[in-house]
Simulated assay, not measured.
Amino acid sequence: MYIDTHAHIFRANISSANVVRYVPNYDASCEQYLANLKEFNFSYGVLVQPSFLGFNNSYLLQALKEHSNLRGIVVIDPNNISDLKEKNVCGLRLNLIGKDKPNFDDYKEALEYIKEFNLHIELHKELDKLLFIIDDLAKYNVKIMIDHLARPNKDTFKLLDEFNNYKNLDINFKVSGFYRLDEDLAFSKDVFDKLSDIFDIKHFVYGSDWPHTNYESKINYQKALDDFLKVTNDKAKIILQDNAKELFFI
């Protein structure tokens, strides 16, 4: 049972966020994504709300209702956690690239729900700023998922050692988006090796990051998987299969 824990679906030229970095001019449909899962022998997929759709999770939630092998990670207004309570939603994403550190007091209700129902909170932020966010989040005792191997670059690589201070937290990593890490696969392997020296391999899951927004001309589903196998080597099988089951209610 292979599980892809990170993909996006959307319609062309639609944005619901107040500030966006990028809005794709093409469709990435649920049907296309399901075809990828079938072709590459994945049993389950996890849809992650993209930043440019803001709090409008409707397209994602509709896909979850129609397909039992999909799970979802939503983005919410902290004053309205209703989407977090929808069936087969298993986490809350904070898209923090280019944004200030959140005030987690604003997310009190959401964090209480996440803890009570064993969901997780997903963080997308560059490593040098991510560590401060984890410090603030630690007191809430919730599961944490970190996107794209914590988004270090070659200048911030040494900061990965700081994760030694968080071994007592339930922190997990998506082995994904290598092209977002200085577009250097060897560097991505160094990052993975460093983190997997600190955390047990059960804390890592695979994500295709399909359809690879902003990098569509450089990557596809096949290459994303091939690169993952090169980065993780003999650890690939357990990452692809068992690790994601509890985190994503599979």
Rank of each mutant, 00 (worst) to 15 (best):
Q241V: 15
D4F: 05
D242Y: 07
I133Y: 03
K115Q: 07
M145E: 03
F40I: 07
D190W: 09
C90S: 09
T232V: 06
I133N: 05
N57G: 03
Y140E: 00
D136C: 14
D182N: 08
K189V: 02
I146P: 00
I238W: 05
I114Y: 00
E162F: 00
N168S: 13
A138P: 06
Q62M: 07
D100M: 15
R93A: 05
I97C: 09
L240F: 12
R11C: 06
K65C: 13
D197S: 13
L149V: 06
D106Q: 15
L229Q: 14
L181Y: 02
I198D: 01
K158L: 14
D227E: 15
V48G: 08
C30Q: 07
D135A: 10
L131G: 09
S176A: 12
V46M: 11
S176P: 07
L92N: 12
G45H: 09
R21E: 13
F10G: 01
F192H: 03
N168K: 10
D128M: 05
S196W: 10
E122D: 05
F40K: 05
L61M: 11
L119M: 15
N56S: 03
F132I: 13
G98D: 10
L225R: 11
Y2W: 15
N233V: 14
E31K: 12
K194A: 10
E112M: 03
L96G: 13
E39V: 07
N25H: 01
V74M: 00
S15C: 12
N25F: 01
Y215P: 06
A138N: 09
I9Q: 07
D193N: 11
P152E: 05
V175F: 04
L61S: 15
E112Y: 08
G207N: 09
D105S: 13
